[in-house]
């Protein structure tokens, strides 16, 4: 996913740089006479229409795939409660009591089954970002005090997954991490 996003960006950025360079050179070559662009209003209209249609297609294809709608019709086979706090994640398959939060030493989840993470925070805002074994970010949500964000995901590959905090939360934010295993 990240690679294709980067490629898309690089191609579009290179195209834009080419257009600006081309237009600049055309001005330097123009001499004394204004040749300009013929029918600019018409061309502007077409440019706008194409952009509108492209963005419309992007929006209609991507919005239904937003994480809020992921696996919405299915029932999760496992639920993991996550309570984030400065500077650790507490995870348990049982509900966590905020007054005496206790988690499980290790979490094992099944591959190819729907897992729901119920993520909250006991102090400040944190991030709950899941990285696969090649350190690629695959899914995330925020941990916010007073709220529970439900993140649903199916893990295809067995192995160890790392969790990192992706919302700056204080002086030890960089060491706030945890993990679980998918079998």
């Amino acid at each position: 996913m990240q690679n294709s996003i980067l490629m898309l960006f690089l191609v579009l950025a290179a195209l834009s740089a080419l257009v600006f360079t081309f237009v600049f050179i055309s001005s330097k070559k123009a001499g004394m006479s204004v040749q300009g662009l013929s029918n600019p209003l018409r061309k502007r209209f077409w440019f706008l229409l194409i952009l509108f249609v492209v963005l419309g297609i992007f929006a209609s294809v991507t919005i239904p795939r937003s994480p809020y709608f992921l696996f919405a019709d299915e029932n999760p086979s496992r639920v993991v409660h996550v309570a984030a706090m400065q500077f650790a994640f507490i995870m348990s398959e049982k509900a966590i009591d905020p007054k005496s939060p206790v988690g499980e030493a290790s979490i094992e989840l099944p591959a190819n089954e729907l897992v729901e993470f119920r993520v909250t925070s006991l102090d400040v805002n944190h991030g709950f970002a899941i990285y696969d074994q090649s350190n690629r970010l695959i899914a995330q949500t925020q941990a916010m005090p007073g709220y529970v964000n439900r993140l649903r995901w199916k893990f295809k590959e067995p192995g160890k997954y790392t969790i990192l905090c992706l919302e700056f939360c204080g002086m030890a934010h960089q060491v706030m991490r945890s993990s679980f295993t998918v079998k």
Binding site: S26, S27, L48
Partner: peptide, 26 residues
């Protein structure tokens, strides 16, 4: 998304049109 439409089709397009094949005192 929509914020990019007026920016691209009016401001950016206008800057490009103002320069394209036009002698400018750079």
């Amino acid at each position: 998304y929509m914020a990019s439409l007026p920016a691209a089709s009016v401001t950016i397009f206008s800057v490009l049109v103002a320069v394209y094949r036009t002698p400018i005192k750079w």
